[in-house]
Computed example of a mutant assay.
Amino acid sequence: MPFDPSMLFMIVILVFMIGMMWWQSKKAKKQQAKVNDFRESLQTGTEVATYSGLLGKIVSVDLEKEQAVIDSEGSLSRWRLQALTEPPIVPAYVHDDEVDEYGNRLEDKADDQSQQDEQDADEAQKPIEATAEQNAKDEQTK
């Protein structure tokens, strides 16, 4: 049987596809385990969000019925554990007037500039002090 390059190509593609399916399955199992750990660790006071967008804190959890009661700004509601997820991380808001064109905070620049000015003043003072010390030594030797 002669060597057929197209057969080798088909085998490589098949191995690649099987590898991709295995990798996706492993990734999905890891994600599912993470979600299950979150749901099992729910306690009173834990901040949660629902997939529909409700934000609140856990008041009570019933693992047998797979339900939780959420307090959202004073109103209580009962949700299935499958509908709960971790709350989104809200980034800190910085107004455009507080940053330069590169996104650096303006007060940080002012602080850096004042520290640089202090360092420059200290370095300018060092030669004067060194000269004064040298003159004092010279006078003592006379």
Rank of each mutant, 00 (worst) to 15 (best):
I11V: 15
S25P: 00
A121G: 03
I128M: 10
G45T: 00
V35G: 00
K137N: 06
Q115H: 10
A68G: 05
L84K: 05
F9D: 14
R78Q: 11
T50G: 05
Y102C: 02
E47R: 11
E73A: 13
L106D: 00
E73N: 13
E86I: 10
E86W: 02
F3P: 03
L63K: 14
I18V: 15
L42F: 08
Q32E: 10
S25C: 02
L84W: 08
I18L: 14
T131M: 14
Q31S: 12
Y51T: 01
S77W: 06
E139P: 00
Q32A: 09
I13A: 14
D112G: 11
L81Q: 11
D96K: 03
I128A: 08
M10Q: 09
Q115L: 14
W22T: 12
Y102F: 12
D111M: 13
S25Y: 04
N135G: 04
Q31V: 10
L42V: 11
Q116A: 05
D117K: 09
N36L: 09
Q116F: 05
S114T: 13
Q67R: 10
G53N: 06
Y102N: 09
V48Q: 00
R105D: 11
F3M: 12
S25Q: 08
D117I: 08
M17Y: 02
H95Q: 12
T85C: 14
P88W: 05
E64K: 11
M17H: 02
F9Y: 05
A121N: 12
Q32V: 01
D120W: 04
A110M: 07
E64D: 07
S6A: 12
A49R: 00
W22V: 12
S41Y: 03
G19R: 03
L81F: 05
H95N: 13
S6M: 08
D122C: 04
A124S: 12
W79I: 04
Y93V: 06
E66C: 07
H95K: 13
V90I: 15
P88E: 05
A110G: 01
D37R: 10
K65S: 14
D117M: 11
R78D: 10
Q134W: 08
M10I: 04
E86A: 08
K29G: 11
Q134C: 06
M7V: 13
K57F: 01
V61P: 00
K30Y: 03
Q140R: 06
L76Y: 07
Y51H: 02
N135M: 13
P127K: 07
V94K: 12
N36R: 08
D112Q: 14
V61L: 00
I11N: 14
E107M: 13
A28S: 09
T131W: 15
L54R: 01
D122H: 13
T85E: 15
T44G: 03
K109A: 09
T85L: 10
E139S: 09
T50A: 06
E101K: 11
